[in-house]
């Protein structure tokens, strides 16, 4: 430790400032550069916006996941929560445009409730969050399929899909949603006492309890925020994805991978909003790149597995 610090003390200050920047921004630039080199079409405004629009659900989800990760847990239920919400809304609305806002409100409510249940199970029943949220995944997946009779039924009106599909002055609405959501999350995480307590709970729950932090309450709030992000992601996703029983598949692990890429440390205590949004974008761009290079889709799982293991091994090594 001391060797490094004396070494870096002699380095020019400009390099030090460079080191203060999160590495994910360089990774993002490198991936986007590789993408543009492989297919110059991504330099155009239209495809670029399309890419951003398609990655917006993941960006929102990753920020929600960040809250849970900072608090020291995981939320593996978000993917099936998205599928559940899309199936239920399609069933409920069945193309009726008037009820769309009611349906979006319902999504938010269900998302918050599901998150609250996860949080309650983890903090009061002391079930490890991976197991609790995997159980919730089964419940939501089974529940969605049960209510829709095993296949996707009904359809979503354009009013419901507007958030994820429309543009204002050529600028996707979904990106505005991401910016607003990201800004609110940043304020909560970095500028409120709740945010500080979240970091405390994640880095040392015992110390947090002893210093009077309501650990259970903070944990539950983090899971509720993740549920909320899943609800928003579901409406954004419905803008370009069809109503299907696999709409949200894999999103839970993508959200975790994105958060990890953005420098969030699994099992708690570290991570910040904007690098995580960049991480989500980088992951989506990486998947696009793999696609351009002709890798089959399941290779994405391999990449994510490697990202998760390497990131955790790296942060374990630094400790």
């Amino acid at each position: 430790m001391s060797i490094i610090s004396t070494k870096s003390g002699t380095l020019p200050k400009r390099f030090l400032r460079l080191r203060a920047i999160e590495p994910i921004y360089f990774i993002l630039i490198a991936i986007v550069a590789a993408m543009v080199l492989s297919n110059p079409i991504y330099l155009d405004y239209g495809p670029m916006m399309q890419l951003l629009r398609r990655s917006s659900p993941l960006m929102v989800l990753a920020v929600g996941q960040l809250f849970v990760i900072v608090s020291g847990g995981f939320d593996l239920a978000v993917g099936s929560l998205i599928t559940f919400l899309i199936l239920i809304c399609a069933l409920l609305l069945n193309g009726n445009p008037e009820l769309a806002y009611f349906a979006i409100a319902l999504c938010v409510l269900v998302g918050l409730m599901s998150g609250a249940v996860n949080g309650l199970i983890v903090s009061f029943w002391k079930v490890p969050s991976i197991i609790a949220t995997l159980g919730m995944l089964l419940i939501l997946r089974g529940g969605g399929l049960y209510m829709s009779g095993g296949s996707a039924r009904g359809n979503l009106p354009d009013t419901f899909r507007a958030l994820g599909r429309d543009s204002v002055f050529g600028f996707p609405v979904s990106l505005i949603v991401v910016i607003v959501f990201g800004a609110v999350a940043w304020l909560i995480l970095h500028r409120t006492s709740f945010g500080r307590q979240l970091y405390m709970v994640g880095s040392n729950p015992r110390a947090a309890t002893l210093s009077g932090v309501n650990v259970a309450g903070i944990r539950i709030a983090a899971f509720m925020f993740s549920g909320l992000s899943a609800a928003i992601a579901a409406t954004l996703l419905s803008g370009f994805s069809g109503v299907s029983t696999s709409a949200g598949d894999g999103y839970e692990l993508q959200a975790i991978s994105a958060a990890v890429l953005g420098g969030a440390v699994l099992l708690g205590g570290r991570g910040s909003v904007f690098p995580v949004i960049a991480g989500a974008l980088a992951l989506h761009a990486l998947f696009t790149l793999l696609n351009i290079w002709g890798f089959p889709k399941p290779m994405r799982d391999v990449v994510q597995g490697l990202i998760i293991i390497c990131a955790v091994a790296y942060s374990a090594r630094r400790k």
């Binding site: 009061f124 002391k126 919730m136 995944l137 049960y146």
Partner: peptide, 26 residues
Amino acid sequence: LKQVLRGAIIIAAVAVYSIRSREEVA
């Protein structure tokens, strides 16, 4: 519906044993 019940049973089954633990879990 069976899948829903399975999920609930797994959570409940683990909870029955972990609920007594005083340690914080992640």
